[in-house]
Every structure is written in structure tokens, then in C-alpha cells.
Deep mutational scan, measured.
Amino acid sequence: LQAFIKTLTGKTFTVEMEPSDTIENLKAKIQDKEGIPPDQQRLIFAGKQLEDGRTLSDYNIQKESTLHLVL
């Protein structure tokens, strides 16, 4: 599935991932794409901060969901 990552500066980019991917995997993909170390990334979806060990499906993240990236 493709999801949108929106930063506080208003920049939006897309990442490809599977519902079974962990938040940790997602942070690694963001690092590959944007060069931001995972330990500096905080991802917010539906008002909740996402925990590394959980999966996208745990948070009911669907295709074309928008996640907010806070540094």
C-alpha cells in the first residue's frame, strides 16, 4: 500500500509498504528516502504516536492514509 508522510514544514512524500510492516520498518524507509535517522522520527496517525514494535494494521493504516512526521 502507498501512504503519505507529511512533515511539519508541509512537505509530503509517499512510501510503499505492507500492512504487516512494523513502524520500525516504516521509519527505515523514511530514512532511505529522506535521510532522517529513525531515532529522530515521531510518527503520528489519528492523533496517536506510533510505537516501533506495532504494525500498520495494528493502527488500521490503509492505503493513501496520511501520517504526520514530527522531528
Rank of each mutant, 00 (worst) to 15 (best):
I30G: 00
L50G: 01
L26I: 08
Q31V: 04
E18S: 14
D39N: 12
L67A: 02
I44C: 12
M17W: 12
P19W: 14
T14R: 08
P19H: 09
K33H: 12
I61Q: 04
N60R: 06
K11Q: 08
E51F: 05
P19M: 12
Q41L: 05
T55R: 12
G47S: 04
D32L: 13
P38R: 13
K33A: 11
K6I: 15
G35L: 03
F45C: 03
K48V: 14
K27F: 02
T22H: 03
D32A: 14
K48N: 10
L8Y: 13
Q41I: 12
R54D: 07
K48F: 09
Q2T: 15
I36P: 03
R42W: 09
T12C: 10
M17C: 13
K27N: 00
L8R: 12
K29C: 04
Q62G: 14
L1C: 06
K48R: 11
D32F: 10
I44V: 09
K11L: 09
V70N: 05
I5H: 02
D39C: 11
G47N: 05
F13I: 09
I36R: 02
F4A: 06
T66H: 15
T9H: 12
L67M: 09
P37M: 05
K48W: 06
F4D: 03
T14M: 13
L43E: 00
S65L: 09
D21V: 03
Q41H: 03
E64S: 12
H68S: 07
D52P: 07
D32G: 08
S57W: 07
G47Y: 04
K63G: 15
I44F: 15
V15F: 09
L43G: 00
V70E: 11
E64Y: 14
I5F: 02
Q2K: 14
S65V: 15
Q49Y: 13
T9R: 11
T12P: 03
T55L: 11
G10P: 02
Q49E: 15
T9F: 12
E18L: 15
L71P: 07
K27S: 01
K6N: 07
E34P: 00
K63M: 12
I5V: 08
N25A: 14
I30Y: 01
R54C: 08
N25M: 15
Y59D: 01
I61M: 08
